[in-house]
């Protein structure tokens, strides 16, 4: 672990990232927006109900909304942070020198990955105090928060490795960005359409629920839907009856996104040093 973290690329990138004020202002804005949202929500609900009292179910609703906002942030920021990691070095002509150093391809990819992800993790963790506010009002199981954070971690790991992979495979950062965002939108949005489609097809002509692995598959790789099953056990139950598959969606999500992460990292490491043509 220690040797993993004594990674030159990681140390340099972290140093550079926190040297520029951009990172701090980014986090500051995020915290401010979250606070305004939370206090606004509490203020509005209490003043609307007129009771001056924030009920646990309202607190849970707030928690769910915050969870979705953070998921959205992760989905949108991760590609931006990772899809240029290798290709910008290529464009700035620093990659060839980096590749002649004694670092292994895995070390370089690992350093790039962790430095980008560290920033996102920091951002999420810095929001924890605001989360704890929701706790004060009850309605949220602490275990749920742990589960949600693990879910976030897996999601940003997977999207991050996809970004790094495209950045390794594709010469131009701009193209890599577009493809990474495209993949993210496919996973977060397009899969939902496929889910609707396969549900339509499987329920065609019958009213009784039938075994439908396709519906299960599309549902299990959609972050928004899987997160809903984590927030609302009732919804998980509903999916189970609909697809007639006992396995909880998060298991499918865990398997799929772990494989995706491993595959993307493996490919990046494999391809970083081959076909090194001249980058002029």
């Amino acid at each position: 672990m220690k040797t993993l973290l004594a990674n030159p690329v990681l140390i340099k990138e972290v140093k550079l990232r926190f040297r520029s004020m951009k990172s701090f202002t980014g986090i500051l804005f995020y915290l401010m927006a979250m606070s305004i949202f939370v206090f606004g929500f509490i203020f509005l609900t209490t003043s609307l109900s007129g009771s001056g009292f924030f009920r646990p179910d309202e607190s849970f609703l707030l928690f769910s909304m915050m969870t979705y906002i953070q998921l959205g942030l992760i989905l949108f920021i991760t590609p931006g942070l990772t899809a240029g990691t290798i290709s910008t070095e290529r464009e700035k002509q620093t990659l060839n020198i980096l590749l002649t150093t004694a670092q292994t391809s895995f070390q370089i990819i690992f350093g790039k990955m962790t430095s980008s992800i560290a920033f996102l993790l920091l951002m999420i963790v810095s929001g924890l105090p605001i989360y704890s506010l929701v706790f004060l009002y009850g309605g949220v199981d602490p275990l749920q928060i742990v589960v949600i954070f693990l879910f976030y971690f897996l999601t940003l790991l997977a999207i991050g490795s996809i970004g790094v992979m495209y950045s390794t495979l594709i010469r131009k950062t701009i193209v890599s960005m577009i493809v990474t965002y495209g993949t993210m939108i496919f996973l977060a949005v397009v899969t939902a359409f496929f889910l609707l489609l396969s549900v339509q097809i499987s329920t065609l002509g019958t009213t009784a629920p039938s075994f439908s692995p396709f519906s299960y598959f599309w549902a299990s790789i959609n972050p928004a839907i899987v997160m809903l099953t984590l927030l609302q056990p009732g919804f998980a139950q509903e999916i189970q009856t609909m697809t007639v598959i006992e396995l909880p969606l998060w298991v499918g999500y865990l398997v799929f996104y772990s494989l995706l992460t491993a595959g993307a990292i493996w490919l990046s490491v494999k391809r970083l040093r081959v076909n090194m043509n001249k980058y002029k």
Partner: peptide
């Protein structure tokens, strides 16, 4: 074993 200096190269800004 080698020290290589390419014909074209860039440097990291902010370093």
């Amino acid at each position: 074993q080698i020290g290589y200096m390419p014909d074209f190269f860039g440097v990291y800004d902010q370093l």
